[in-house]
Design a protein around this nucleic acid. Structure first.
Lengths: 226, 226
DNA sequence: CCAAAAGTGTTGGCTGTACACCCATGT
DNA sequence: ACATGGGTGTACAGCCAACACTTTTGG
């Protein structure tokens, strides 16, 4: 019954079993033009040549998944300085038994410059209208979306989708894009102030051709962990 | 700027980078004698020889982490037929860059027979009073505990900790053990019935030397996914 | 003066919490 | 009779959802 099998702890002493291919995947989401969008790159190699896919790739020797996710994201899209949260570890997305550790993060699209990577062509795509994706990247994106909506209730996740100072209307629009439904303005404002996660700056937004709006900032501009 | 780097999708075509050690870890929790307990096995090899640790070990060739977790659990403890939920993927628990996919599950200790594995000595330990553990297994257990408490609010996770039929008092004791605080009996019962996750069986528990109690069962005896 | 977005309160329903006593059984 | 756990209701507070009009500005 008991098969002779190495525990994880034995790997340090003797490793006779074959090692495995390990990759990372990164789901970067933003809200732009009222729509939730995801950052994709274009494959230039088989299989799925010319299909769009999430940024990612294999770990380097000795590299942790966390580090690999940061590196891949920068290499393929130029995006840096984002807080990557681990999402889930998928196996067999390619039907060949690979292991892929997925991460996700939110960024402010206005503060994010996509590098021009002729090899990768990084670009934003609305979640609601995705092109055909390599492998089963749809599953990964769905998972990220569920996580995001779940966190929206009890955290300040949206902080990284907005500039340092923003109006409550902008914040509301961001929430509406993520949840894909309209929210009541008065109730939204009451809830936000009662959650005590934002504070008025005293400054006014003047950009509109309309009535100036109070600017707010997040009290804690860092991620709330689960 | 752009370093030449393989994407996950390229692994199918050409893999020149070295593969990685991948392991699984399994956190099995139960409630017994009013305390939350975790299933540990004893290491019989270096490093950490004779220390206690979570069940787990390296993946076999071509094996998925999910399958490896089930296999390791059975091999080392004899526990089968549990729903393993993925918890988190840790890297570097051993300080050597390994990758460990952790799982967790809840079991009814009265329906679980630990096998007598002379090599592993599987045994239950109260979470509040753990022996020294190999590597950083404390981190993994902490993570499982936080996940469990978070899920207790909005799901029926406790279903697998109890027999098919149980009294509301048993259910309450289970919740109290997990949360490690007392709950108000009337409020607890109101909340449980309003959640509509249990139903009366019509049968009575006669085991006590006290007043017989109504037996209940979960309406959905399967896990509620996140 | 018109279009566009900013800002503002009240009510009713639901939910969670605090709190104490009687009942049925076995010994 | 007593010890043990089973079972029940009410009142208050906080939270959420529904709902409409006035103000300020730019064009």
């Amino acid at each position: 019954m008991t098969t002779r099998s190495d525990t994880v702890q034995e790997r340090a002493s003797a490793s006779r079993l074959p090692d495995r291919q390990v990759a990372v995947l990164v789901v970067i989401l933003t809200v732009n033009e009222g729509r939730l969008q995801v950052l994709l790159v274009r494959r230039s190699a088989e299989p799925f040549k010319d299909a769009w896919s999430l940024p990612g790739g294999l770990l380097n020797p000795g590299e942790s998944p966390d580090d690999a996710a940061v590196r891949k994201l920068e290499d393929e899209t130029g995006v840096t300085d984002v807080f990557l949260e681990q999402l889930y570890t998928f196996s067999d997305l390619d039907g060949l038994g690979s292991i892929a550790v997925a991460y996700f993060a939110l960024v402010d699209v206005r503060a994010t410059n996509l590098a021009t990577r002729t090899e990768w062509l990084p670009a934003w795509f609305p979640i609601a209208d995705l092109p055909p994706l390599a492998f089963e990247n749809e599953r990964v994106i769905d998972y990220a979306l569920r996580r995001l909506r779940a966190k929206l209730d009890y955290s300040n996740v949206a902080y990284s989708l907005l500039p340092a100072e923003f109006t409550l209307s902008q914040l509301q629009s961001t929430y509406e894009a993520i949840l894909s439904r309209r929210l009541d303005k008065r109730n939204f404002r009451k809830r936000i102030v009662s959650l005590d996660i934002v504070e008025a700056t005293g400054r006014q937004a003047s950009e509109g051709r309309h009535r100036p709006a109070q600017l707010y900032r997040f009290r804690e501009r860092k991620p709330v962990m689960f």
